[in-house]
Structure formats: structure tokens, C-alpha cells
């Protein structure tokens, strides 16, 4: 009986996380179109509902009503499995994200490693889609994407190590608590900038969106997909963006902590602060898309391996050196 209750309780918590997340994804697409519109002196979506507020729902409905096409040369099973993998991986990362003090589904000891593992799995959805589509464009997109994600994972891993050294724990709640008084964005500012760029590359967003390079690959790995399968890729990509923004705000921007520990700021509850920080990081995603041109592929690889990797490795050495020399290691 106790087990049944436990499972039921977990299911309710999962729904409490997933449903607002999917709403967030829907309105992230709206926000993206509005922000880019504003940056390009346009209005963005305006026709469906007041200020176009119902546009995401209309888009969802449209995708839902379209016909699902499976190309005749495609490997059917994997073709259908790929969008599901992408979407599920984008959701299960949220299991360890602390929304407030103690507000977390699974407060596991190795939370950071779990997130790292999940984000490194994200490449499978893309590579499976690219291979199963049996199309040159999709396959090239998938190959580019996997090379890119594997490369930038390394620098993300090293950046995370610097943060872990300072926090002294792999538990996400403990990392946030270690930032009480001083957010890691201040001592680790160069790593914060590197993380922002790697984050864009890891989620295949502009200016590193080579896998879906419209000009040379049509849309890359998802070119053969239509209807809900395409929608799942789309939802997965945006849910991944939100997840990355959440990881960024936990590692560097103090998670649920208020910016200052005194009265007008502490009135606002932790989850609200957390969501505000996620929105701020998401704005950077959209801002980068509106302003930066796409990287050339060899330059992308050069940036990852020859610039980010040595810099983040150097920062790990510097961080551990400083921590040992000034006896600041967390116990």
C-alpha cells in the first residue's frame, strides 16, 4: 500500500513539473517570435487572440492535425522512436532540478552528473533521426550535430568541475546553498561566459545551429519529419533550452536565492526568483539568435577544441590552485 501511495505521489509531482514546463515551452516560442520581432522592428504574432497570445496553441493544433508521413525508404521503428527519445530526454532532466529549498523531485547526491549524462544522451535523438530518415540532408545534419555536441560537452564538463570544486558537492541543492552571499557568476565570470556559448552549441541553437542549417541542409536532421513527430523535436529542443537555462542559473546565478539577502528581495519566494533567472538566460538565447550570424563548421570545431577546451582546463587548474593556496576548500 505504501508503495502505491509513493508511486501516486511521484506521478502527481511529475505532472506538476511537466505541465507548466510544456506551457513554458509553448510560450517560449511566442516570446522568441515577439522578442525577435521587437529587435527587427516588427510586431511579431498579433492575429490569434489579444496580442497574438493564443498563437502557440494555434500552432500546436495545426501540427496536431497534419498528416504523419513516414518516408518509404526510412527505417520505420527508429524513425518513430527518434522524436520520442529527444522529447523524453528533454523532460527527465527536470527530475533533479531544485525549484526552491527542498522543492525537488529527486534530491540525489550526483545531481550534476545526472544532468550531464542526460544532456550527453540528447545526441541520440538527432543521430537516430538523421540515420533513419535515409536522406542525405538529414544524415549530414545528424553527423554535424553529434560531432558538435560531443565536442562542446567536454568544455561544459570542465566548466562544471570548476563550479563543483568551489561548491564541494555534486548535489544541486548543495551547490545553490554554497552560493549564499556570493553567486558563482562573480568568481567564475569567464567560465560563465564560456558556459553561455557552450550552452548554445549543446542545444544546437544560433549561432551554432549547424545541424539545421537552412541554407545548406534544408533543415538538417528533421527534414523528413512532419506533424506530431516534428512537433516532438520542436518541443524537445525548446524544453532543452529551458533545462540548460535552469542548469546555468543553478550553477552560476544562485538558483532560487534572492540577489540580496535583505528585506524587499527576500519577500519574493525562491521559485519566482528561479523562474526569473531562467527567463533572463532564455532571453540571451533569443538575443543571440536575433543578432549573431551562423558560424562556419570548421570555425565551430576550432572554437570548441582550441579555445574553450584549453581555457576551461586552465580555469580548473587556477580554481583548484587558489582554493588550496588560500585554504578555501569546502569541507
Amino acid at each position: 500500500m505504501a508503495e502505491v501511495l509513493y508511486v501516486a505521489q511521484t506521478v502527481v509531482i511529475v505532472l506538476l513539473i511537466v505541465v507548466p514546463l510544456l506551457l513554458g515551452v509553448a510560450y517560449l516560442t511566442y516570446a522568441e517570435r515577439k522578442v525577435i520581432g521587437a529587435m527587427q522592428l516588427r510586431q511579431g504574432p498579433m492575429t490569434v487572440g489579444p496580442w497574438g497570445l493564443l498563437q502557440p496553441l494555434a500552432d500546436g493544433l495545426k501540427l496536431f492535425l497534419k498528416e504523419t508521413v513516414v518516408p518509404s525508404g526510412a527505417n520505420r521503428g527508429i524513425f518513430i522512436l527518434a522524436p520520442m527519445v529527444t522529447f523524453i530526454l528533454a523532460l527527465i532532466g527536470w527530475a533533479v532540478i531544485p525549484f526552491g529549498d527542498g522543492l525537488v523531485l529527486a534530491d540525489i547526491n550526483v545531481g550534476v552528473l545526472y544532468l550531464f549524462a542526460i544532456s550527453s544522451l540528447g545526441v541520440y535523438g538527432i543521430i537516430m533521426a538523421g540515420w533513419a530518415s535515409n536522406s542525405r540532408y538529414a544524415f549530414l545534419g545528424a553527423l554535424r550535430s553529434s560531432a558538435q555536441m560531443v565536442s562542446y560537452e567536454i568544455s561544459i564538463g570542465l566548466i562544471i568541475i570548476s563550479v563543483l570544486l568551489t561548491a564541494g558537492s555534486l548535489n544541486l541543492s548543495a551547490i545553490v546553498r554554497a552560493q549564499e552571499g556570493l553567486w558563482f557568476v562573480i568568481p567564475h565570470f569567464p567560465m560563465f561566459m564560456l558556459f553561455l556559448a557552450s550552452m548554445l552549441a549543446e542545444t544546437n541553437r544560433h549561432p551554432f545551429d549547424l545541424p539545421e542549417d537552412e541554407a545548406s541542409l534544408v533543415t538538417g536532421y528533421n527534414v523528413e519529419y512532419s506533424s506530431m513527430a516534428f512537433a516532438l523535436f520542436f518541443l524537445g529542443e525548446y524544453a532543452n533550452m529551458i533545462l540548460m537555462a535552469a542548469i546555468c542559473s543553478i550553477l552560476f546565478l544562485g538558483g532560487w536565492l534572492a540577489p540580496f539577502g535583505f528585506v524587499p528581495f527576500t519577500w519574493i519566494p525562491g521559485p519566482i526568483w528561479f523562474i526569473l533567472k531562467i527567463c533572463a538566460v532564455l532571453f540571451i538565447f533569443i538575443w543571440a539568435r536575433a543578432t549573431l550570424p551562423r558560424y562556419r563548421y570548421d570555425q565551430l570545431m576550432r572554437l570548441g577544441w582550441k579555445v574553450f577546451l584549453p581555457l576551461s582546463l586552465l580555469w580548473v587548474v587556477v580554481t583548484s590552485g587558489v582554493l588550496v593556496a588560500f585554504d578555501l576548500l569546502p569541507r
Binding site: V110, L113, S120, S146, V150
Partner: peptide, 25 residues
């Protein structure tokens, strides 16, 4: 042994198997 579990996923699934898949494809 949660650390070993996560490292298995990060190293084997996230890196080794991706390259493996690359070659096989």
C-alpha cells in the same frame, strides 16, 4: 553506487557509443 551508474552513462553511452554509432552508420 550512483556515481558509477552516472559515469557509466556519461562515458559509455554519451561518448564511446556515439563514436561507435558514427562508425557503424
Amino acid at each position: 553506487a550512483e556515481f558509477l551508474g552516472m559515469v557509466l552513462v556519461v562515458v559509455y553511452v554519451g561518448a564511446v557509443a556515439v563514436l561507435f554509432m558514427f562508425v557503424v552508420m
